[in-house]
Design a protein around this nucleic acid. Sequence first.
DNA 1: CTGAAAGCGCTTACAG
DNA 2: CTGAAAGCGCTTACAG
Lengths: 330, 330
Amino acid sequence: MSNATIYDVAGAAGVSLATVSRVLNSPEKVKEETRQRVLKVIKELGYRPNVIARGLASRKTTTVGVVISDVTRASVAQMLSGILDIANKYNYSIKLFSIPEGADVLDALQNIVAEQVDGVLYLNDELSDRDVELVKKMFTDNNIPFVFANVATSDPIVPTVSIDYVKAGYEITKLLIDQGCKDIYLLSTARRYSVNDKKEEGYTKAMLDAGLEPKIFRTSGDTAINKPHFETFFANVNVDGAIAVRDSIAVSFLNIAINNGKVVPQNLKVAGFQNTRYAALSRPGLTSIDIPVYDIGAVSMRLLTKLMQSKDVENTRIILPHHIFKRESI
Amino acid sequence: MSNATIYDVAGAAGVSLATVSRVLNSPEKVKEETRQRVLKVIKELGYRPNVIARGLASRKTTTVGVVISDVTRASVAQMLSGILDIANKYNYSIKLFSIPEGADVLDALQNIVAEQVDGVLYLNDELSDRDVELVKKMFTDNNIPFVFANVATSDPIVPTVSIDYVKAGYEITKLLIDQGCKDIYLLSTARRYSVNDKKEEGYTKAMLDAGLEPKIFRTSGDTAINKPHFETFFANVNVDGAIAVRDSIAVSFLNIAINNGKVVPQNLKVAGFQNTRYAALSRPGLTSIDIPVYDIGAVSMRLLTKLMQSKDVENTRIILPHHIFKRESI
DNA sequence: CTGAAAGCGCTTACAG
DNA sequence: CTGAAAGCGCTTACAG
């Protein structure tokens, strides 16, 4: 059965356990003939090295920690998907840590360090600048390579894979302006995410550049809460363009707009962020910034593998391209 | 720094390492005074036991393996969320394993066993009956408790947390029949999932019970592929009711129906499964079977903790309640 | 209540 | 190319 140990293999193959270990870890040091013999026994016994014992002896666990806030966010799940695919390819295991809103970040980080992961992928974007420094210090002090994925940090050194959210925010706003919109609102979340702050920055700049007044409307990510919120909104303001920081907010806004007699895109143009299935399933289809979240995950993991092998990496601040995916809402 | 070991703590506190270990693992065996002294040093040094070493010595890793196929499926992400919350509460870590479609299941399972997890949560529903038996045998042989979450197995013994999908399929079909629908289609996926088979079973029974002909239309989960598929569909058949095995399929169908001149719900009623945000963001809102996926995850994890402590669990086949969440599409 | 010692299943210099 | 031995950082009977 699968609980064979390295001793069993050594015994059955008539070699020492050191040799078995070498067959697995540095096969070039073992004579072809012995190696074949050992390999045969390994297969017969279904032997798989106990990764815990290996981790203790080698001080490498081939495990990376992935830190998230909320798996149910579509972007997080898709990044995870990219991470898992690359991790499988490189034979790394994934330990998943969620640090919920309001949790003790320091305690959580110490916990991750105690778990002896070889590296960390940080997807949790609900971080203050102070937290970012804490993360950086904790992993640096403990010699654990880490990468921020889809987290906009103001720290200029920390390894990061993301897109240029300021530019994306600027471009989509510019597009609406070029189509003649004047009263363009940015629909953002009440809770602050690092990437949303960047989107707001780009939006604001585009509006000011065009001599228009930036107007940010903060709402919840929760559809049920949005409804009355948006209805009051339509009763009180003039609006001919809207950009939401998430597709789901955009779709919810668009639905309520149409139910309130607006015609999209003729007298109201709407755009979202991330080009999720919400955008595809909206009627009319929602124009959205396509953000390669899967790739952000995959590239982060690949960058981390390099960092873990302490290869000298030329570029640890990777910006992936984005583009505007046009549908009928603009 | 955080790389203090148990020896450092023992030295600084003037006790043996055995005592430090006891303070952590069976504090009642240590004199109050010594315990306080050790605790103080632990705090000062920021000591956290190396979980790998602990895992090797105690043969308990306080880690559970979670097996999935595709994280980006909304149900999977939400189950994960429930799992993580409960795992945090009980101080278990989560290792995430994805077994992609077409992968070597046996190899993947051996891998999980080698990872020395204390228990396994199996969310991967892309399993043949043969695979289910393989999973069962592998973990049973290696003495690893496991729970199937939201996987419909035909094995009557295996620990499972799910809902009654046959009943759910029956009920939603019955609802459409009661509203006068005659030509009711089930929109299912081309790829077979264990739970979808159950939904089909319930649908079929309800149709036959009412003397109607069951008609299953298989399509892709992919929206882009659906579109031409559904358009041909509308050109060729009579349909006054549709039940999709996923909300996203339902919404995509509903949109195309409306664009083809159907009036929902007056001459076409549509229902989905799972009551995701797709259903809430549809216009009109989509009636859907509300499936407590978060709870399925949470309850599975709770059940697994009991199994791992080898408590005798009265019931290892848990069926959670579902209900129909009504919106405007029916 | 506490300590000395063996052991968990591996890896990795060190000899030969 | 191979083996004997130390060691990774803990836990846990066993004595006392």
